[in-house]
Simulated scan of single mutants.
Amino acid sequence: MQMMYWYWKKKGIRPAVFYQIPYGELTIIRAFYELEVEEENEKIKALSGMPCAALLL
């Protein structure tokens, strides 16, 4: 559910699309999702020590 919300919010992909994706492909998309979230968290962590980090996002 969280992954569907992420793709709706960030990419504009409707949740109904996820119900039509084959299981194997959905597994890969889930792995990509986890990498994307991890990368974003690392970026936020790196910027957190900078002044006015919110302006850089």
Rank of each mutant, 00 (worst) to 15 (best):
I21L: 07
L57K: 12
I21D: 07
M50G: 14
I13K: 09
E40F: 02
E36Y: 00
I13V: 05
K10L: 08
M1H: 03
E40L: 01
M4S: 10
N41Q: 12
L55M: 15
I13A: 04
R30T: 06
L26D: 02
K11T: 02
W6C: 11
V17C: 10
E38T: 05
K45W: 05
I13F: 03
Q20E: 08
M1Q: 14
I13Y: 01
Y7S: 02
M4Q: 13
E25F: 00
A54I: 07
A46P: 04
K11H: 04
K9G: 00
A54S: 15
K45I: 10
L56F: 15
P51W: 01
E34K: 10
F18W: 06
L55F: 05
Y19V: 00
M1G: 13
A16D: 15
P51Y: 12
K43I: 01
T27Q: 10
R14M: 13
E25K: 12
Y33N: 06
I13E: 03
T27Y: 00
F18G: 04
K11E: 12
R14Q: 07
G49W: 02
L26A: 11
A16K: 05
S48N: 01
E42V: 10
E40C: 03
E34D: 11
Y5W: 12
Q2M: 11
W6L: 08
G12A: 04
Y19C: 12
E36T: 01
K10D: 04
M4A: 09
R14K: 15
L26Y: 07
V37N: 11
M1R: 11
E36G: 05
K45N: 12
E38Q: 14
A53C: 13
W8K: 07
Q2N: 13
P15N: 07
S48L: 06
L47T: 02
V17W: 05
A46I: 02
M1D: 11
K10Q: 12
E39Q: 10
M3G: 01
E40P: 03
E40V: 08
L26E: 01
S48G: 00
L35S: 08
I29L: 15
W8Q: 13
Y33K: 13
G12Y: 00
R30P: 00
L55H: 10
I44G: 13
S48Y: 01
W6H: 14
F32H: 11
M4T: 06
F18L: 02
F32V: 09
E34I: 03
W6R: 15
M1S: 15
Q2W: 00
R30E: 05
I29F: 03
L55S: 10
A16L: 13
G49S: 12
A54G: 08
Y7H: 12
R30A: 09
L56T: 06
G12P: 03
V17A: 11
E25W: 01
Y19W: 07
W8T: 13
E36R: 03
E39N: 14
C52A: 10
L26V: 08
L26K: 09
W8E: 15
S48H: 03
W6T: 08
